[in-house]
Design a protein around this nucleic acid. Sequence first.
DNA 1: CTTGAGAGTAGACCATCGGTCGGTATAATA
DNA 2: TATTATACCGACCGATGGTCTACTCTCAAG
Lengths: 247, 247
Amino acid sequence: MPRIIKHPELRREELLDHAQALFLTHGYDKASLNDVIATAGVSKGAFYHYFASKEALLEALAARFARQALAGVQDVLGDPALDPLGRLNALLAKSRQAKVETAAEAWALFETMFRPENLVLFHRINLAAGAAFSPLLVEIIKQGVADGTFRTFDPEGVADIVMQFGMATHDVVAKAIVGGSNADMDMAIEALEKRVRLYEIALDRILGLPDGSIRIGEPGYVRAVMTARRAGPAARRAVPPKIRKRS
Amino acid sequence: MPRIIKHPELRREELLDHAQALFLTHGYDKASLNDVIATAGVSKGAFYHYFASKEALLEALAARFARQALAGVQDVLGDPALDPLGRLNALLAKSRQAKVETAAEAWALFETMFRPENLVLFHRINLAAGAAFSPLLVEIIKQGVADGTFRTFDPEGVADIVMQFGMATHDVVAKAIVGGSNADMDMAIEALEKRVRLYEIALDRILGLPDGSIRIGEPGYVRAVMTARRAGPAARRAVPPKIRKRS
DNA sequence: CTTGAGAGTAGACCATCGGTCGGTATAATA
DNA sequence: TATTATACCGACCGATGGTCTACTCTCAAG
């Protein structure tokens, strides 16, 4: 019955791809629905066939981010050889890696990633990712409390703090940026590294662990990824696309 | 030269008052500029005489919140008898008091205070308040590090964590709410109290203090204020005003 | 081979949004 | 009195997110 041009789900994904590029570069509010459908080469009727609203598009995008993030972490949870501390460290490292790579990607695309106009988009992503990750964190912490590795009276609360720390890294980078020069990026990297060290110690102490137990990726990892990306092919990617009637 | 109907500054404040009520009950995005000027009984021209844009109105509102919060805290900083720990505790207690009272006020007005549509508004308020409070916090922490009360290598980072904790209380309440019944409010209060206890211990440990040093207001304070407010005259205030052509 | 139901598509159209603009009223100054 | 700047008004503007009707294409049923 339907006119099959591509696989049915593919069209939706395509729409999400274009929306993601536009939202990341121009912000959710500033990128209009007309921009999205214009760059995707789709009519309004087609769009509203796949999504109920612009809002729904944002939610679907955030959900996809969360799904991807969760997928990259399943192996850690499935590994029965890891103890709670090992699990927690692996999860944090994965999370940090994903964050840094996303940041590097966005930086190569456009520096506006960390501008306030992206607040809504990132809040949604963090919300969706948080909803997906939080139960896993709680489970790990409870496990650690049960076997005596961790000491806390509020696993859910600690899990929330961990999520907070993760989300706050975005703000750290944003604060360290004034313009968009290389020096600014160096500052941002340095600030992020220092903050991560603080978070590690904070989590050690909150969980009653000896300092140095929690390791969110090796020092220097952030710099390595971001400089590599900046010089790599991703940096040479096409500048943010946007189809407007009048510039 | 001007046509003086009231004191010149009063008009602006009045506009802010109406905007505040509307933004808190309906959200920044959903409350249109026409709603604001309609409830305030002011023409569009008049509005744009006082504010450059709707965005500027939001910023002015956030700035007023921050100014008020800061004013209520000046006496603490001016007291030379307090040591760093005493100062920090007093500052945290004041901050919590302001938060709880604002929450109680908003709850009495309308339960939608904690809905996601208020993200933008609260982000602005927290940003403005953070910008005002952060330097004070850093100063206090540095002072404490200097005299050996606190132990940390990153006073700015710790200050940021304190601010994060403060902002997160909003999310804690939001998460505890499903509908808007009394039971929900009880849940929210309980969750908030528990979370505050966790934050206290977390800060103790991050700063290298013995457990129980940091006290963010006495236990039971949240419940006392919110139940008092709910039964008080504020609860009987008029329901959220909004003038629309068509409902 | 015909047909018709429904997924998929197109784009004119709509109310409403934040914001602009030409104009008017007032009153202190010159 | 003429000038000038402030305070204010509201019709109007382009753009936005969203709706609606009409159409095309596909394929299973007859």
